[in-house]
Simulated scan of single mutants.
Amino acid sequence: MLKLTFLGTSAGVPTKRRNVTALAIECLNPHASGLSKGNQPHSNSQNKKSRPWLLIDCGEGTQQQLLHTKLSLRQLTAICITHVHGDHCYGLPGLLASAAMSGRREPLTLIAPKAISALLDAFILHTELYLPFTLNFMSIEDLLSQEDNKSKVKIDLDNQHQLMIEVYPLSHRVPSHGFGITQTISRRTLNTDKLVANGVPASALWGKLQQGENVIAEDGQHLLSADYVHDDVQRTKVVIAGDNDTPECLSEAVMDADLLVHEATYTHEVMMAIQARNPDFDPMHSSAHIVGTFAQKMSLKNIILTHFSARYQSFDNPDSETPNMAYIRLDAQSVYQGNIWLAEDFAQYSVNGATDLVDNQAGSQKESRVQYVGSARSN
């Protein structure tokens, strides 16, 4: 299960209600202690050490936004920066400095354009920024130049819990990128009821069967692991886009995605008006209409729109003459019939991918699900 917390949803500049872009993604394992059978966190929450998280973009003020959440910089596993525009990266030096001052010592992965490395080098040199942890920098340019699918970064969280981060080029005034985040959780389950029914009492043999070994019981029965064990593999994939005027750049990325998070800076009407006033200027952002059209074409079931122009107020009233979120929502809904959410700062969503249940009889699959779970401020 992935849990998304929006830390900033404004385009370009902050507003009184929205900070600039940042998104936290917690990687929760429903089989770990602290999570209920319904895959929802208990009130005492999963042990922090088993709650690694990623940060996608880090606009100015992101570390201040984090103070309103339960996220710890010590459990931050990786930071991914989509592009070099300030509303997506100006908060990075301060956040890293705060991580150092909070006592972090574990290595941290940073996936970003090469220019971000130069930016950090300048801060380190001119402000005496000291990082007591290793920053494993991976440039997007180098990743995309690799062949044989080496633009993927694999992160092993434990022996049953892995992440794969994929990079996708987008279309913007500067090189911009999207990230596909795929979580894989595997679990081998022993059918104890079947063992008992077949007269095999609990013993060390059960453990061997669960580990994939074929064994001989005390009464001489030959027990095949495949007859008593099935594998559950849950894959959850979200695609997070940076600034992008051509959602079709993500056609391949969203083929197997449970959720697309994409900017919708304007309504289509406003975007056309901007271009008409200055034909030589292309904002190179998407309207809600453009994203909705793409999502409908790709049969996407779930999209979350974010990165809204400051001209749109946070309330939702289609009858108001003041531009507001209803304008964005209706622009997308005019062409898209799936599930749509408009992100707000601190809004949280859980994403449960489909689970493949594989045994020696047949394979089956549980449906994926995206759900709004409240605000980080109140949770």
Score class of each variant (00 low, 15 high):
residue 1 M to E: 10
residue 2 L to Y: 00
residue 12 G to R: 08
residue 12 G to L: 06
residue 13 V to Q: 13
residue 13 V to D: 09
residue 16 K to C: 03
residue 19 N to R: 15
residue 19 N to G: 14
residue 21 T to E: 15
residue 21 T to C: 14
residue 25 I to T: 11
residue 27 C to E: 03
residue 28 L to S: 02
residue 32 A to I: 06
residue 36 S to G: 15
residue 46 Q to F: 06
residue 50 S to K: 15
residue 54 L to H: 05
residue 55 L to C: 11
residue 56 I to W: 10
residue 62 T to I: 09
residue 64 Q to V: 10
residue 69 T to Y: 12
residue 76 L to G: 10
residue 80 C to R: 01
residue 82 T to I: 04
residue 84 V to W: 04
residue 84 V to S: 13
residue 85 H to S: 12
residue 88 H to L: 11
residue 92 L to E: 09
residue 101 M to D: 14
residue 101 M to Q: 15
residue 103 G to N: 04
residue 108 L to D: 09
residue 111 I to R: 04
residue 113 P to A: 05
residue 114 K to Q: 12
residue 118 A to F: 15
residue 118 A to P: 09
residue 118 A to Q: 15
residue 120 L to M: 10
residue 127 T to F: 13
residue 129 L to D: 08
residue 133 F to R: 07
residue 133 F to Y: 15
residue 136 N to H: 06
residue 136 N to W: 04
residue 138 M to P: 00
residue 140 I to S: 00
residue 144 L to T: 03
residue 145 S to F: 00
residue 145 S to T: 06
residue 146 Q to D: 02
residue 147 E to A: 13
residue 150 K to Y: 04
residue 165 I to N: 03
residue 169 P to I: 01
residue 169 P to M: 07
residue 171 S to F: 03
residue 173 R to I: 06
residue 175 P to W: 01
residue 177 H to A: 10
residue 185 I to T: 00
residue 192 T to Y: 10
residue 200 V to C: 08
residue 206 W to I: 00
residue 209 L to D: 05
residue 215 V to G: 04
residue 215 V to M: 06
residue 216 I to T: 14
residue 218 E to I: 08
residue 218 E to A: 13
residue 231 D to N: 00
residue 237 K to L: 01
residue 252 E to V: 10
residue 252 E to C: 05
residue 252 E to M: 11
residue 253 A to N: 01
residue 254 V to Y: 02
residue 255 M to P: 01
residue 257 A to D: 03
residue 257 A to P: 02
residue 263 E to P: 11
residue 264 A to H: 04
residue 268 H to Q: 14
residue 273 A to F: 07
residue 274 I to E: 11
residue 276 A to W: 09
residue 279 P to W: 02
residue 287 S to F: 00
residue 287 S to W: 04
residue 292 G to S: 09
residue 295 A to H: 04
residue 299 S to A: 13
residue 300 L to G: 01
residue 306 T to L: 10
residue 311 R to C: 10
residue 314 S to T: 12
residue 315 F to W: 09
residue 317 N to S: 07
residue 325 M to I: 08
residue 328 I to M: 07
residue 331 D to I: 00
residue 341 W to Y: 13
residue 342 L to V: 12
residue 344 E to P: 03
residue 347 A to N: 09
residue 353 G to Q: 01
residue 355 T to K: 06
residue 355 T to L: 03
residue 359 D to W: 03
residue 362 A to Q: 14
residue 365 Q to K: 13
residue 367 E to H: 11
residue 370 V to K: 00
residue 372 Y to Q: 06
residue 374 G to D: 09
residue 376 A to R: 05
residue 377 R to W: 13
